[in-house]
Write a protein that binds this DNA or RNA. Sequence first.
DNA 1: GTCTATAGACGGATAGAC
DNA 2: GTCTATCCGTCTATAGAC
Lengths: 200, 200
Amino acid sequence: MAAGLSRRDELLQIAGELFAKKGFRNTTVRDIADAAGILSGSLYHHFDSKETMVHELLDSFQTQLFLDYDAIESSDLGPRAKLEAVIRRSLEAIDRNHSEVAIFQNDAGYLSDLDGFEYLTARNRRFRDLWTQLLREGIAAGEIRSDLDVELGYRFLRDTVWVAVRWYRPGGPLSGDEVADQYLAILFQGIGIPTTNKES
Amino acid sequence: MAAGLSRRDELLQIAGELFAKKGFRNTTVRDIADAAGILSGSLYHHFDSKETMVHELLDSFQTQLFLDYDAIESSDLGPRAKLEAVIRRSLEAIDRNHSEVAIFQNDAGYLSDLDGFEYLTARNRRFRDLWTQLLREGIAAGEIRSDLDVELGYRFLRDTVWVAVRWYRPGGPLSGDEVADQYLAILFQGIGIPTTNKES
DNA sequence: GTCTATAGACGGATAGAC
DNA sequence: GTCTATCCGTCTATAGAC
């Protein structure tokens, strides 16, 4: 399909799409093999197990994502601008790594209980710390409404951003940037202190 | 556990909690039987199949929910008040029917492909029509920002409301009403035309 | 209403030929 | 790198005793 992909990467991508669409448990190794045009036993020449496949998908995706989060966090932007950047990068992930985000959204609960997937829980905590910290800084800086419950606001933000993976389709009518603009408009005119009162 | 429940209803409740927690596919009939203190074969004295169990849970819940939606729709409230009432009723469902909402959120994609579950898709459409209609009426009445993209706003609303089932726990620190107040504050101060400019 | 016992299908994974 | 062939565990569901 895409050029320059090793057979292994190609199989990973096929598996990722199936995991994302049908769920990890509900995707059989025979499904993956069928989609790749080979037999199920042949998959084990490339991967140790079905779990290895989903691990590689999630880990490489998350590693890159958190590198970018870290860069934003340590930048010299203000709290609200950082929050906006983090949200934009997250929505971008839905565009660029649709399968991985969908798998994480749908199956993280199941996967994080498995041996070898403890990092999912750890990264979840780090994610939470980053976002709540930015909210608190934004409130302290007067850029975010002081009556916002940080815990609830965090969950609201997190969920509204990531749940978009359920309907957003890369290459669909809306570009990732358009969605980000609209989302941020809805979100910040909700939680940001209004600066202008644009009325039709 | 609860009083006045028939054995059948008791088993349904146990199954619902497991489906909600672990997912439908990932919950075995043995899991359900274990939790109920009986053997798996005995379940089939009460139910035809595992699918029957999840069907009964979802159908009876949704029937009641849509009766209430219909009552709100045909009331004499204004569009924004109707939207607010529909959102409150939905958040209330997360409180009162936590298992059913969680099952629907997590497994509707899989279940709606099964024979006998076509009504899930039909109700989804009805739900969408109701919410987008209220948004459009709200815009026409000047109660909701006219630059809101109705389709995107609908998905935003829908997802932010229902996804709360992932973290909200009945009997937890926040009451359903408190969550609803905060959600509506965040939401409407985002998508509603600001009436006052309360600044700290 | 529950248990014993088991049928029958499907799941992940393996060994070795090609 | 893929195929053939197959093991073995788990799953839903059934039949009939108690």
